[in-house]
Design a protein around this nucleic acid. Structure first.
Lengths: 124, 124, 124, 124
DNA sequence: GTGGTCTAGACCACC
DNA sequence: GTGGTCTAGACCACG
């Protein structure tokens, strides 16, 4: 069963998007694996203190992207093959790094400076 | 006079926010400097093909953050000291890099891998 | 739910500013308290006979000053701790009295005369 | 010749209004008296570092209120009788005190508290 | 239903 | 001409 305890919601971004991203990051980090069970919408709604409609929206998106599989009245499960994992990985990581690179370039920050800043700010 | 010709608007984010960020990045890149004149709301509105109220909203935010100075009936100017520049720089760059680091850590990406990905994806 | 029935608008000052001040004075007078629900933009707009955008502007300012809390799709609530209340009180009352004192001094009115004028003009 | 050296302009209020009020307060404080000469518009414009049109607007208002007397191409003079002084005094002082009283009442501040606050905040 | 953004256009105060 | 406020109404994202 996937745990959402480490998910801390902030309100500068839609809640449903944070839930979706949390799952995707878990998949990339391999803490979420093929076949794992999702909590029911009702339970997750209570856990996170969030409107059930919001949970429903997150699950719908995950299903549309082929990441989970739901049947009416039944439990939902993660559904992944290795191709899916690496495409999620690429989509998630490379797009985030790409966005940062674009931002740095527009701000006149050189590649070297960006790398050294990242070195310095990264704390394990 | 500050030029907004290089600002290309996308519609996945509020226009006013893109204008604000464009100015901040210009300040960090030192292409926008203390004392420079802002285009009038009407002019920039025409240049960008955007409603004057949207420009007004961006300018209001910039003024509330102390970056520009507006007086009724007079032109608007950029108002910066070196402390302001470095605080904008920190806010803009370090927060963006910090967010990326957090994302990478949550995705289980190591520091080395993140740096090498950034090396590889950065195209001048 | 906060009532705006006693708010009478005059047109010598921006409407949004009058709404903001009305809320602040309600807080100082303790007729508005932590956790109370704000009317929705649409409802207050109808109540006051004012455009929704004007209400939105007032609410935005209140939120930027940390007095109310808004989330897209959810109702808006007053959010106050005792420190906030006293700072609003100081900002509102002491600055108004301070401005009056400055004005009186510049006009050559003595403390005694000002106090006696105030005694005389105050009608319950 | 009336001195405007003590007039410090702030930009939260129209400049012309600040000039007008400065003159009125000087009259109430009797540091400005009947027959005194006003600086020329050109000179005052330079002294205050303000657009000549703004000075012109202030002078026009003062003239419309019968406080100064201007002839084309000639100097301007203050023109006051005792009735004028007391009406300016009433208009200026009592309206300011009256506004404060209204504000205090809306904020739930009692007469006694307002008077004691004023006592306490008044520093010679 | 609720909040947020945007367009369109008018009007005013100010310099 | 320039900045600021307001109305009117549409549209979208969110819960």
């Amino acid at each position: 069963m996937i745990s959402f305890e480490k998910l801390i919601l902030n309100d500068s971004e839609p809640i449903y998007a944070q839930i979706v991203r949390f799952v995707k990051r878990g998949i990339v980090a391999e803490t979420i694996q093929d076949g794992e069970e999702m909590p029911s919408r009702r339970v997750l709604s209570a856990t996170l203190g969030v409107n059930p409609n919001t949970i429903q929206k997150a699950y719908r998106i995950l299903e549309e992207e082929g990441i989970i599989r739901s049947h009416a009245g039944a439990k939902s499960f993660v559904q992944l093959d290795s191709a899916a994992v690496s495409s999620i990985r690429a989509e998630l990581i490379e797009s985030e790094i790409g966005a940062l690179i674009g931002a740095m370039q527009q701000s006149g920050v050189s590649k070297e400076e960006a790398l050294s800043l990242m070195q310095r700010l990264w704390k394990e």
